[in-house]
Design a protein around this nucleic acid. Sequence first.
DNA 1: CTAATTTATTGATTTTTATCAATAGCTATT
DNA 2: AATAGCTATTGATAAAAATCAATAAATTAG
Lengths: 187, 187
Amino acid sequence: MEKILGIFDKFPFLSDSAKTGFLSNLEKVEFNKGDLLEKEGEVSQYLYYFLEGSARSFYNRNNRDITVSFTLDGEFVTAMHSFITRKPSYENIETLEKSKAYRISHDTLENMFENFPETERAYRMILEEYYIVLEEKQIFSKFKTAQERYLELMEYRPKVIQKASVGHIASYLDMSIETLSRIRARI
Amino acid sequence: MEKILGIFDKFPFLSDSAKTGFLSNLEKVEFNKGDLLEKEGEVSQYLYYFLEGSARSFYNRNNRDITVSFTLDGEFVTAMHSFITRKPSYENIETLEKSKAYRISHDTLENMFENFPETERAYRMILEEYYIVLEEKQIFSKFKTAQERYLELMEYRPKVIQKASVGHIASYLDMSIETLSRIRARI
DNA sequence: CTAATTTATTGATTTTTATCAATAGCTATT
DNA sequence: AATAGCTATTGATAAAAATCAATAAATTAG
């Protein structure tokens, strides 16, 4: 079993046969900057694991583009709401740069669950991670000023600041572009 | 198999043996108003299913009591962050009134996963539900004024307004008590 | 390489909601 | 029923950040 991927690092309980099964069902995909992995209005089909590059998830509301998350290499991403509910997604996912990823379709994943029950645990753990990130983001924002939120992002995910535009970061941190611009000017 | 519970309604795929196993591991618990089900600083031990009554989950920050969710009858609740990570919870859960619930400990749940792999799917679905609620709450708040948030709560979960105090509702809707009071005065 | 377009900065003003403060209304307990 | 202790309302003011507006800088395309 190759170890170059890192994709199984968090799932040591998977049997070799499950890993092999998984690998044979993964599809390697490459993207150019700005490619759309998932589109609003469509049911999210894939769960992605980023090998290289980065992406952002966003949605539109009142003609605004709101970034809800950033994905860096070594991380999983999908339009989770749609992936879970099998209803059309309100989310888009686009790459911020040339990227490489593995992906697995929802259907294939369900087959994996039937054939290798342990894989359901791996998925559960991805889901748990998703949940934790969302909850922590919510609580972290609650008592912080715009500037504190920006400083925390700088501290904990500096890569995001390098890769995303002011507009993306501002909406992600729930502030206007102007406010973020002023914060950057004074720190 | 009795059907009075409703607890299995969402998990039709569970085998009878899994259901029986589950039931024998469920503990029935009763609470008075204000009882603490889960305490901050301690690792969350139980997943609860409310048969009757209601509860709220809250945490303290800067000497403020912030309500993060309400649980009504027929719903599951735990301090999910701690339940997942097995780290001390920052969350408390208290009943808003006399209540009855079933609960299952984390350890027992893990045993269930080993003995009846299908139960892992049921837990996954609870987790998915938790995720969806959190995500929807986040997005719903984003573009709404204080008044709109209150009106939506009235529309979708009117029971909460009957059972919780202004202070609980205000922090849940992310506004001050005074703001909520003014909203109630003018609608 | 230059024009066009998008993205970012800076300033002035407004808006929403928080905070501070005082009072009023409930609830519970003796 | 009276008192104490919360809980809720209402008013005045302040603060944080949004919005509107005008440039400036940086990217992209021709």
